[in-house]
Design a protein around this nucleic acid. Sequence first.
DNA 1: CTGAAAGCGCTAACAC
DNA 2: GTGTTAGCGCTTTCAG
Lengths: 347, 347
Amino acid sequence: MLCPDRDAKSPRSGRRSTGRVTLQDVARAAGVSPITVSRALRGERAVAPELVARARAAAESLGYVPDPAARALASQRSSHVAVLIPLLTNTLFVDLLEAVQSTLRTGGYQTLIGVTHYDPHEEEQLLREQLAHRPAGLIVTGFERSEGARTLIQTSGVPCVHMMEIRRAPGVYCVGFSQQAAGQALTEHLLARGARRIAYAAAQLDARVMQRAEGYRRALQNAGCYDPALEFLWPEPSSLALGAQMFAHIMVEATPDAIFFCNDDLAQGALMAAPRLGISVPTDVAVAGFNDLPASEQLVPSLTSVHTPRREIGQTAAQMLLQLMRGEPIESECIELAWKVVQRESA
Amino acid sequence: MLCPDRDAKSPRSGRRSTGRVTLQDVARAAGVSPITVSRALRGERAVAPELVARARAAAESLGYVPDPAARALASQRSSHVAVLIPLLTNTLFVDLLEAVQSTLRTGGYQTLIGVTHYDPHEEEQLLREQLAHRPAGLIVTGFERSEGARTLIQTSGVPCVHMMEIRRAPGVYCVGFSQQAAGQALTEHLLARGARRIAYAAAQLDARVMQRAEGYRRALQNAGCYDPALEFLWPEPSSLALGAQMFAHIMVEATPDAIFFCNDDLAQGALMAAPRLGISVPTDVAVAGFNDLPASEQLVPSLTSVHTPRREIGQTAAQMLLQLMRGEPIESECIELAWKVVQRESA
DNA sequence: CTGAAAGCGCTAACAC
DNA sequence: GTGTTAGCGCTTTCAG
């Protein structure tokens, strides 16, 4: 079964034979040329249905598996997609990654992860490494990056899709939503519920956080109750513990009647810490995380959050990239997904 | 600067030139043969220091980046490492992944993720796909897998390191700790604190959960207070919500004086739900998650947990794999890392 | 619609 | 220590 006459033609036989079942072996078994098998298996160009069947059968019976390295070398394109995300410690990005990964897998692509830690320098370095591997595609988070990184992406010629933010520009592919609009909507929702002193609690301060802050500001300015003293922008990394800390600080310093936490971590930490802090959250304090806060609505009288379609963003971005990589036409370069404000009252 | 006489020797010139800077270009610039540059850059075999310097300089000035596909094809080994984990929704595995990924990166390897969803069939399928890419190494979680998967790993010849569990056997590489011993120690700790009716709350029921349960059982049997009615083994996937549900159920059905949750998720969910459930956790109820529960000790009088060195496991496993891939000698095939029981009293 | 030839860029094997 | 030669397994190009 194993390539009986593999060395028939090479005089200094089998010098580097790897024991792998090759296209050549399949071709011999199917009684056609290697290139025909290649085309048949890839479904590229037109091949007589009968030959396709024979090729497939032969490949199947020999257990043929194409060698990705050889394929990449010959075609100048690999089956890898590099995905760059800021952190793995934030469930938002993990959810995105998971959705991206599983969608790409169905398309036959492997996912290479890169964690930037919100560091432009590290992102650029990572991009350089990843692009050296000639990935078939690239998925990055947001638009905030170094000039060098931008150039690397552009000149690489590798199709790239941006997640989480949207920007309408020619040749820019993105899937996300308007962070600012979402922030504004959430704030308006709190206003509509009667809150007036709404604090904004943010950490990390990446681009998206600041866009949400801008939405918050506009909503309050429109309502005539913007107060800079209610903005708490802390640069350190977001975490549950920091959320608890900020919550304690804000409740004491600012006596707000609602708090808009810029993300889940902070909100969740605040909610969990509340009992210990002895701060009995008054009925009119709403805590608003930016996404879904699992199982924590019990801790406060009311909880407002914006449900953002994380998994859908990851999936849609991956699908768009698949189309790009396959050279298929794209309907829209920029897909804006819907989020919604969700209000939950404690039971 | 760009390969001036690239087509000098090929009659039907430039048929498929890719514009990439190749080893050939560097060799020309350095005035040596390609293979010498290759060896110099890889630090393989002995090359005259002077030539090494010239090669490096030329590579640097031309901006040469080795082509991984060509390298993989020629050498039959890629620079990819496949990492298989059960879930991305559990922080344990995310932490492991993060540690593995960053350690591998320092060694020049790329991480390919595979999520098995605790499904042996899916794992086998994934393994098949991943191994087709001839990864340089493989990292998997635990030892519980299908016979087919085991065979795939063995016959692939790809070095493989197991995380999280330990098993001393020739040719088996692993980094982890004894789940059973940890479970037993935690239970004994609770016993020492005076608890007698200790419930075991578990979900998912993978191998590691059951090993911890076995430790729990032994500790209670030794103490003469094992009661099967206190074991709650629910097969559904673990989550915060499930933790809340189990907590309510257990407190009503079993009136325990301590609960050993088999993992963080369940414990955290229980802690968060407690206030709403109206179950004022009595002073003598200890809730023990299996790992670190961030910022939640405030919710119960006392919290016992086992701190397992997740990041250290990931890092150590990756380091071991790096040694294996480089053909370096390994001191120990099986590394057992230390965990510790941590007791925190509410302030 | 099918095939022959020619590499993709690199490294293993062997000589010198 | 260095170079020569011959591929790794696939796909592109160009002819039929």
